[in-house]
């Protein structure tokens, strides 16, 4: 039995627009285990980043309900002072754009050192420098004693992302949240960074939440996958099950819309319509139903819940049983066409 690291219970993160609150993350429950990579997938606007920011307590103007249990502490209920002790120490975060997420006017060494100083008050200057050099080495940056005094703009994109990672792992956090860590990078750099994250995970035994819209990255990295749509998890399964036996129409649509380097496809699947904006999110019934209008209304549940279909494989709504792609109702469409 995997050891629980983080448990999210009925988390709702809402933003105020004019006079009403709209939930970007809606009554979401999820656990992350030690030494596992949990991928969260979905299009932009589905609430994955809002979820990550909630876990890190980084929302400044959101209303957060529900519990985020880390060890015996509830992050969702912490005061700013308490959460500052956890962030950067137990929880580390890697951001999408390594250029904008580094302070342009601060030396690399100082930026990494800051994470150390904040959580280890008694470290001497020399000790910090030593540790920073160590970290730069660990993330595979050549000539660390030179890079330590450089500024972000002097490094390449891949090197900058390594710096961001070094910052996130400085205090060996137990939980690492990586928010689209390779989206801004070239494909060869991407594979190096992913490999690095994997290596660090094995060294530190941490749990990783990997947020991405790239299903290839998911297939390569994840142990378990949560597919999010409109603030909810619509499908949750281990990675092999999800790719071999995807159930929810949204998951299947996503898989079908990716051009696959291994197979010939003439046409890619297009999900009808667009991800609704926060104010226009359907709040009742199956939220994905509007984008699969050819599926009969009676196929959807009135109050769809995430239900376990087989052990460890959870799906929301019953519509998956009645779903097929419109053109040629062939289930294998994403494999052959």
């Amino acid at each position: 039995m995997a050891e629980k690291l983080l448990e999210i219970k009925n988390l709702t993160t809402s933003f105020r627009i004019k006079d009403d609150y709209y939930a970007a993350v809606d009554n979401l429950s999820l656990t992350v285990n030690k030494n596992e990579v949990l991928a969260i997938v979905g299009e932009s606007g589905c609430g994955k980043s809002a979820l990550a920011f909630s876990i890190m307590g980084l929302h400044t103007r959101a209303k957060i309900d529900g519990d985020i249990l880390y060890k015996d502490k509830n992050i969702a209920k912490m005061s700013p002072a308490e959460i500052n002790k956890v962030r950067g120490k137990d929880l580390g975060m890697i951001f999408q754009d390594p250029l904008t997420s580094l302070n342009p006017l601060m030396e690399i060494g100082d930026q990494i050192g800051e994470t150390l100083i904040l959580h280890n008050k008694n470290l001497s200057k020399n000790k910090i420098r030593e540790k920073v050099l160590d970290l730069l080495n660990k993330v595979g940056i050549p000539r660390p004693e030179y890079v330590i005094n450089q500024f972000p703009h002097e490094l390449s994109g891949g090197m900058r992302q390594r710096v961001v990672i070094a910052m996130a792992i400085a205090n060996e956090p137990e939980l690492l949240i990586a928010d689209e860590p390779t989206t801004a990078l070239d494909v060869t750099i991407q594979s190096q960074i992913l490999e690095l994250i994997n290596k660090l995970k094995n060294e530190m035994n941490s749990g990783i939440i990997l947020i991405t819209h790239d299903l290839g990255v998911v297939a390569e990295m994840a142990d378990r996958v949560a597919v999010m749509y409109a603030g909810q998890i619509v499908e949750l399964a281990d990675v092999k099950t999800l790719f071999e036996n995807p159930l929810h129409p949204y998951t299947r649509s996503l898989l079908n819309s990716v051009p696959n380097a291994n197979e010939e496809q003439d046409k890619l699947h297009v999900i009808q319509g667009i991800v609704p904006s926060l104010q226009n999110l359907p709040r009742e019934g199956c939220r994905f139903s509007a984008r699969i209008p050819w599926v009969d209304e009676t196929a959807h549940e009135a109050h769809p819940e995430l239900k376990e279909v087989t052990p460890g494989h959870l799906v929301r709504c019953t519509c998956y049983k009645h779903f097929s792609f419109p053109d040629d109702s062939k289930e294998e469409q994403h494999v052959l066409s």
């Binding site: 060869t188 594979s191 290839g216 990255v217 390569e220 790719f243």
Partner: peptide
């Protein structure tokens, strides 16, 4: 070769194989 090898594979079963290949 390196560029093509770096493309993430959509099949999680080939993960180890791919890693070795890379």
């Amino acid at each position: 070769k390196r560029l093509v090898a770096a493309i993430p594979d959509i099949d999680p079963n080939k993960r180890e194989e791919k890693r070795k290949f890379r």
